[in-house]
Nucleic acid binder design. Structure first.
Lengths: 359, 359
DNA sequence: ATGAAAGCGCTAACAA
DNA sequence: TTGTTAGCGCTTTCAT
């Protein structure tokens, strides 16, 4: 017993016990290469007897594959990301991979450090919901080195060539706005966390590649597209800007309500904003959809327990996680695989909070 | 270039570039042992220049510490576990550890396989919210081998000696029931997912170690304790059993309502049941707390947006995750450390859904 | 302070 | 089919 440290059972021990060479034992244990029935039986018996547990670290070291992927996201505690991660982990496990999970809190420094640490652990690939910044150096380095990387939910301009799996943010908003417009609404307010300086017209004009924009901006574009497609135009005075927090949304939308903003329907472009905006509605005892129609984002569980239940745009969260993983695994299997972006469609769930204008 | 595979930069490359021996380079890179100013400078420069990225796999292999812990939980998509995991991951990172996360879906076979795989990856320890079963073999094996293990939220009878970090389930219910009793309520209904055959009296009588029971049973005990402490006794005809799903809770509680069950307050012992039960309330347009008082479990976000806002028992989720990690890290540092269970207290958040009896 | 050498437990040629 | 021999990139004695 060389060390005082508990000596774990290795291939060598199995080989000795089974009376075969190390390689033979290794071969049958990894079910790779060939071995006689007899050898196989004896090795397996020995392994069973000694309680052999393969060392994945050594395996990874020698083979170059750790069978582990990394997920780098803002916050696992958010309903959205926890649901996506569920899909991601399910898909990973189904393919024999485990996942190292880390939160960035949308902090660029944390993201960089996390990616560095995970790269040191030699994960086989990364799924990243990147922090918005000019130069995500850590990610750029990964890509430069040829590490498999898939972006999730959003893509920064500098990462234009990295594959992205996301919701079709634009389409989601077209769906929501279209629903309201088709109900006859014309004065439709929008609650967004997009920077206030951006005018809807400018956003649309910029055209080109929407996916380089923040999801909130893409959602604003989709909103405008729905108007455009019907020969209408968005009234920027109805675009309400909030910070990314329920408190802010509640305050800002509450103020709009108190000041008598003239609108007959409102669309919230994000889950958190939806929650905040609805708080403002609930606090004031406003009746929907009589006073105005209300469309929220994400099918959060509270939306069906309030009165009336809220019409929402629902994201395929689990599917997003699965898709991101599968895209990544494709890249891991073949680093030069041609991968294309994947935009999953949202689904409109009409409920009681929306109704025809003037009802 | 020996392999066609991209040859990564290793200590040897740094040593060569810096003109020192492999050991010297390794020493300064790991900032362990001693080295001259000059050597240190040259090694660091070389590392910077070549873009050296230490291989944590090799490090783990050689040192025996992977600086990775495993979290084995039922479902990361649940609000409860995702919040706990947030705390767990935060604490792990703060101590230089990363976390491998896996879902069991409360399936014993999945749990066993997951633990096995993670053990093969040589994680330094496990935080496990175990599936309830007679013999969690995988966990028992870990413990037998001396692997650091901390149980989270619940403990099965066979794992009596494994440290546990959980909510003080009993205390949480005493708080909730006490609140209602102190408001003058006497006919207090309980909604639980605990097996119907268990009588409250039997549960209390069993006494001994509550932590070996399922959380739902512990919560039922706490409920009874609150009565007991006031010289009262629980009426088992007001104990409503539901499956562990919102649908079931909604159906079962709805039936109780429709059949005119005689009670003036109700307490739901779990988040999912709370949601389901409230659905039944909302569907029937019942006014709270006039018709009866309602106490829910977990401070879910919908509870403040419905009318009236719901009184709930709130768990310190983030703290639970942090505590579990810290306990585990203590065990990792010293396998023979004496660790004791940790039961974190719940907090009662009184809101509009509860009021004095007969109001 | 520095260097040489022996592992850690596996995979992967290459021989036999 | 089986065995031999190098590694993978680091840590860790043990000398010097």
């Amino acid at each position: 017993m060389p060390h005082s440290r508990r000596h774990s059972i290795t291939v060598v021990d199995i080989a000795r016990e089974a009376g075969v060479s190390k390689s033979t034992a290794a071969r049958v244990l990894a079910s790779r290469g060939s071995a006689s029935q007899e050898a196989r039986r004896r090795v397996l018996t020995a392994a069973e007897k000694l309680g052999y547990r393969p060392n994945a670290l050594a395996k990874a070291m020698a083979s170059g594959a750790s069978m582990t992927i990394a997920a780098v996201i803002p916050d696992i505690a958010s309903p959205y990301f926890s649901a996506v991660m569920r899909g991601l982990i399910d898909a990973a496990r189904a393919n024999g991979f485990e996942v190292l999970l880390t939160n960035t809190d949308n902090d660029a420094a944390v993201e960089e450090r996390s990616i560095e640490v995970l790269a040191e652990k030699r994960v086989d690939g990364f799924v990243i919901a990147p922090v918005f910044q000019e130069h995500p150096r850590a990610i750029e380095r990964l890509v430069a080195e040829g590490s498999p990387v898939v972006l999730l939910d959003r893509r920064t301009p500098a990462l234009g060539h990295v594959p992205l799996v996301s919701l079709d943010h634009v389409g989601a908003s077209r769906l929501a706005a279209g629903h309201l417009l088709d109900l006859g609404h014309r004065r439709v307010a929008l609650i967004t966390e997009a920077p206030a300086r951006v005018q809807t017209a400018d956003l649309i004009a910029s055209g080109a590649d929407d996916t380089a924009l923040r999801p909130s901006q893409q959602r604003q574009i989709g909103f405008a597209r729905a108007f455009e497609e019907r020969g209408l135009v968005v009234d920027d005075s109805l675009v309400i800007h909030a910070e990314y927090s329920a408190t802010s949304a509640s305050k800002v939308f509450g103020r709009a309500l108190d000041e008598g903003l003239d609108f007959t329907a409102v669309y919230c472009t994000d889950a958190v904003l939806t929650y905040g905006a609805f708080q403002a509605v609930a606090e004031r005892g406003i009746r929907l959809p009589e006073r105005f129609s209300f469309v929220g984002f994400d099918d959060q569980n509270w939306t069906t327990v309030v009165s009336p239940p809220i019409t929402v745009v629902d994201q395929p969260t689990h599917a997003l996680g699965v898709a991101a993983t599968e895209l990544l695994l494709g890249l891991i299997r073949d680093h030069d695989a041609v991968v294309t972006d994947l935009q999953l469609p949202a689904r409109l769930v009409p409920r009681g909070s929306t109704g025809p204008r003037g009802q």
